Simulated scan of single mutants.
Amino acid sequence: MKLSEKPSSSYSGAMTPASIELKAERVAATKAATEPAPAFALAILAGLFVAMGATFMLVVKCDGTLPFAATQLLGGFSFTLGLFLILAAGAELFTGNCLMVMGPLSGRFGWGGLLKSWLVVIVGNLVGSVLAAALLIGADAASANGGAFAQAAISVATAKTSLPWLTVFFRAILCNVLVCLAVWCGHASTNVADKFFAALLPVMAFMGAGFEHCVANMFFLSYALMLQATGVAGAVTLGGCVMNLSAAILGNAAGGAALGAAYWFVYGRKKGKE
């Protein structure tokens, strides 16, 4: 690619993978240069958006008449709301931002700037997730479907905190490969509809397969703890939540960073900075 070349389209109006990589580098540099306060605000929004998708998914999960495959597929479809809003409306999500490794690899900014950006965003995502859980408690969403909504939320959180650490870690790697592929394809999008379809299948795949997304888990686990505090029966513990989130965060970081590094290796390492 020549230094003067701009990201371009080659088929069906979509950008080429090489042009997506260049755009991803530029996006990473912009994110790294964003002041902490607006980045934190956008991260809170991302936590809220993911929580809304997770809430939509719980509506599907609380219908006990659906067979397993239908529940997983419809739940994944519903959960797509979160990533779609992030891609279309704009917000900062830690899992998608794992692609930012392209910035330091290309020399656009340093590893310290990457870690600082990640820290601000992941804390903001946690705040947004907990805030969404508190809002649902205030809205008495737990009473939906005769209380089945609350039981579905407790069931999801219990299943997550019952998994071994390494299982969560590897599921989180697989999850964020899919999430970052959705973000990667979203970079090629030319309109809002494209962004929705870029998010749809990867999100349905990771939710349907039961992979682990740390920001979604921040919502599921905090909501379960709040439900238990209000008297809903459950066995979710704070220690189990910390175990799950530590594995999910590290696994998501590993999966997303590996995907970003692979695309940089193929398309970015031999070109000059633009």
Results as ranks from 00 to 15, higher is better:
residue 192 V to T: 14
residue 155 S to T: 10
residue 149 F to S: 02
residue 131 L to K: 00
residue 131 L to I: 14
residue 69 A to R: 00
residue 169 F to S: 00
residue 266 V to G: 04
residue 107 G to L: 07
residue 78 S to N: 14
residue 119 L to I: 12
residue 273 K to A: 13
residue 263 Y to C: 04
residue 193 A to M: 10
residue 197 F to R: 00
residue 173 I to F: 03
residue 184 W to P: 07
residue 55 T to N: 10
residue 135 L to D: 14
residue 139 A to F: 15
residue 211 F to T: 01
residue 253 A to Y: 06
residue 7 P to F: 08
residue 25 E to L: 06
residue 51 A to W: 12
residue 240 G to Q: 04
residue 86 I to L: 02
residue 252 N to V: 08
residue 220 F to S: 01
residue 144 A to I: 15
residue 52 M to S: 05
residue 98 C to M: 14
residue 144 A to M: 14
residue 213 H to N: 08
residue 17 P to F: 07
residue 79 F to H: 02
residue 252 N to S: 03
residue 13 G to M: 12
residue 92 E to Y: 01
residue 170 F to T: 04
residue 241 C to Y: 05
residue 185 C to M: 15
residue 156 V to L: 06
residue 138 G to T: 07
residue 121 V to F: 02
residue 171 R to N: 09
residue 269 R to H: 12
residue 231 G to L: 07
residue 32 A to D: 08
residue 162 S to L: 08
residue 76 G to M: 12
residue 79 F to L: 04
residue 121 V to T: 07
residue 228 Q to D: 04
residue 235 A to D: 14
residue 111 W to L: 09
residue 261 A to T: 03
residue 58 L to G: 05
residue 222 S to C: 06
residue 83 L to R: 01
residue 13 G to L: 12
residue 246 S to R: 03
residue 137 I to D: 03
residue 20 I to F: 12
residue 201 L to N: 05
residue 59 V to L: 13
residue 28 A to I: 14
residue 70 A to T: 15
residue 244 N to H: 03
residue 33 A to R: 06
residue 84 F to T: 01
residue 96 G to T: 15
residue 254 A to C: 12
residue 254 A to D: 06
residue 49 F to D: 06
residue 263 Y to I: 08
residue 14 A to P: 13
residue 104 P to M: 13
residue 228 Q to F: 09
residue 182 A to V: 07
residue 158 T to C: 07
residue 84 F to Q: 01
residue 149 F to M: 08
residue 48 L to I: 15
residue 167 T to D: 14
residue 43 A to P: 11
residue 193 A to H: 07
residue 14 A to W: 15
residue 116 K to Y: 13
residue 53 G to Q: 06
residue 120 V to R: 00
residue 268 G to L: 11
residue 49 F to L: 07
residue 247 A to C: 05
residue 184 W to A: 05
residue 64 G to M: 02
residue 41 A to P: 11
residue 263 Y to T: 02
residue 272 G to P: 02
residue 181 L to N: 03
residue 6 K to E: 12
residue 229 A to Y: 11
residue 76 G to P: 10
residue 243 M to G: 08
residue 159 A to H: 08
residue 169 F to L: 04
residue 74 L to K: 01
residue 2 K to H: 13
residue 18 A to H: 10
residue 229 A to R: 11
residue 179 V to R: 01
residue 61 K to F: 15
residue 7 P to G: 06
residue 243 M to W: 09
residue 202 P to E: 15
residue 215 V to W: 11
residue 96 G to Y: 11
residue 111 W to E: 08
residue 54 A to H: 03
residue 30 T to L: 14
residue 32 A to H: 05
residue 66 L to T: 09
residue 128 G to L: 02
residue 145 N to Y: 10
